[in-house]
């Protein structure tokens, strides 16, 4: 599979179809696989593929340093590709301006503590990318809802959230107070996120200041509400924010709460279908609610 991947990339660069391949490399065995930018065909042997390839490379598509390199080919997993779908819907790139190399998740990451992919992979419904120009590998059999025999994919996906929502509001508030008190505002959650492509984030705006920049509990709560809600109906659940957080804050839970409400209220799942209008930029006369008097 890796040979096929390297060969595909080599050919693209040789033919001049793309100027750069955004993929995964691993400079030494002790390192986690990390993003690499291959511009010469002979460097394609640097590419690696294994189930530690966490980073969502779609995040690079909108960056000016990367755009300056010329037309990219980007390697995406099925979950990462959902981010590309949203970015395309939001006109952040034109589809013929990039080449998408899909890789199917052939093996399932070991679940358990310390594996940040386990949570999202267990309920993954997109092990094979759907819009790629070329797809390499075949997804593992019995893909969806691994590890859960009775519940459907959707239920498994939100199991952690549903469990959390059994707590009382006061308990939930106390939980977040403790979690968010650890935030130092390094903004790793924002920078790794493919959807956070604003030139100037609202938290960096100071005329006027909407959100305190201090990493106090007040400023942190306001920041995390803003971060999460700006992803409403856009977050594809790649969990990169949660993986990147040095303080181990469970941002996944906030993203899921929005994903679930979007799914339940508007039957919408971000990045699944290019043709469905984005939930936040559209409306329906039939939208139901039960809270407006």
């Amino acid at each position: 599979m890796i040979d096929q991947l390297r060969q595909t990339c080599r050919k693209l660069l040789e033919e001049g179809a793309v100027k750069v391949v955004i993929g995964y490399g691993q400079d030494k065995p002790s390192m986690m696989p990390h993003p690499v930018f291959i511009t010469k065909p002979e460097e394609c042997d640097r590419l690696v593929w294994n189930d530690l390839c966490f980073a969502n490379l779609a995040a690079y598509i909108t960056r000016k340093e990367i755009k300056a390199l010329g037309k990219p080919a980007v390697i995406v997993k099925g979950c990462d590709e959902r981010a590309l779908v949203v970015l395309e819907q939001e006109s952040q790139f034109t589809r013929d301006g990039i080449y998408v190399i899909g890789v199917a998740c052939t093996s399932l990451p070991a679940s358990g503590v310390g594996n940040p992919r386990a949570a999202k992979c267990a309920s993954c419904a997109v092990r094979t990318p759907r819009y790629a120009d070329v797809t390499i590998g075949e997804a593992a059999v019995g893909s969806s809802a691994v590890g859960s025999s009775s519940c459907s994919t959707a239920d498994a996906e939100f199991a952690q959230l549903d469990e959390f929502m059994k707590k009382t509001p006061a308990e939930r508030f106390a939980y977040w107070k403790a979690e968010l008190s650890r935030c130092v505002k390094c903004y790793a959650c924002r920078e790794v996120c493919p959807m956070c492509y604003c030139n100037r984030c609202i938290v960096d705006k100071n005329r006027p200041t909407a959100i305190d920049t201090s990493a106090t509990i007040k400023g942190n709560l306001a920041w995390h509400i803003a971060r999460a809600f700006h992803q409403a109906g856009r977050c594809v659940g790649c969990d990169e924010c949660t993986r990147a957080c040095p303080a181990g804050i469970n941002l996944r839970l906030l993203n899921q709460s929005l994903a679930k409400s979007v799914e339940r209220a508007f039957a919408y799942k971000a990045g699944m279908d290019k043709e469905t209008p984005p939930v936040i930029g559209s409306y329906s006369l039939e939208d139901k609610e039960n809270f407006i008097q």
Partner: peptide
Amino acid sequence: MRCLGCGA
């Protein structure tokens, strides 16, 4: 090139 510009 791969630096994302966070403060982690």
